[in-house]
């Protein structure tokens, strides 16, 4: 093979490699299937009654039927937003959450729902449950700590906001290990809560 031919092949190889090399520094490690770092700037649950702004630099579960985001991995931090039917089965009897439901009742209902819905958690402690204004509505802010059995006893902190609007119950929560991660990434959750309208 002569030198001219070699030079052409070399240039062609570089042209082919250039986009790969250019993209390499921006590749993300946390890219399991169904999670994407390309998502819209805002999110509205199916009822379109509320909308929130999403933070930069996170990944979004594109297959989830509600909002589910993480930065490094769902076991390290997770933000979710759900639109729920406000009818709960509570202590064996049906109960409907309405705007008139007291924060104490709403807290009890959501706590039981959280414990039943999150398999393998123990030592659940309510740190705070207060009435707040969220997304222009009267709602609940609740903070609990628990130990995760799946993570062999790692302590997590879970913060949620809940409110009723247009006959739907909205639920926005942030879940992360209490040590280091909860405080580190809470700013992104705060921004989402503040942007809610």
């Amino acid at each position: 093979m002569n030198r001219r031919m070699t030079g052409r092949l070399g240039r062609a190889a570089w042209l082919l490699m250039a986009p790969i090399l250019a993209a390499a520094p921006f590749a993300r490690a946390w890219e399991p299937r169904d999670w994407t770092d390309k998502y819209p700037l805002t999110y509205s649950p199916p009822g379109r009654a509320v909308s929130v702004e999403l933070p930069d630099g996170w990944t979004l579960n594109s297959k989830a039927d509600s909002l589910q985001m993480t930065r490094d991995s769902p076991i390290l931090q997770q933000i979710r937003m759900l639109e729920l039917d406000p009818r709960f089965v509570y202590n064996g009897s049906k109960m409907t959450v309405t705007p008139a439901t007291s924060p104490e009742q709403l807290s009890a209902v959501l706590l039981e729902d959280f414990i039943v819905g999150s398999r393998g958690i123990k030592d659940v402690t309510v740190v705070e449950a207060v009435e707040v204004s969220v997304c222009g509505q009267k709602g609940l802010r609740q903070v609990v700590t628990y130990l995760s059995s799946a993570q062999h006893g790692l302590s997590y902190r879970h913060e949620l906001y809940a409110w009723v609007k247009n006959g739907k119950l909205y639920y926005l929560d942030y879940d992360a290990p209490a040590l280091y991660f909860f405080d580190r990434d809470r700013g992104a959750f705060d921004k989402i809560v503040r942007s809610c309208n």
Partner: peptide
């Protein structure tokens, strides 16, 4: 607690390949 958290961090890295 720190070693439990470091296990979660290693899991996250490993799962991310």
């Amino acid at each position: 607690q720190w070693t439990l958290l470091s296990d979660a961090v290693m899991k996250a890295a490993w799962n991310g390949g």
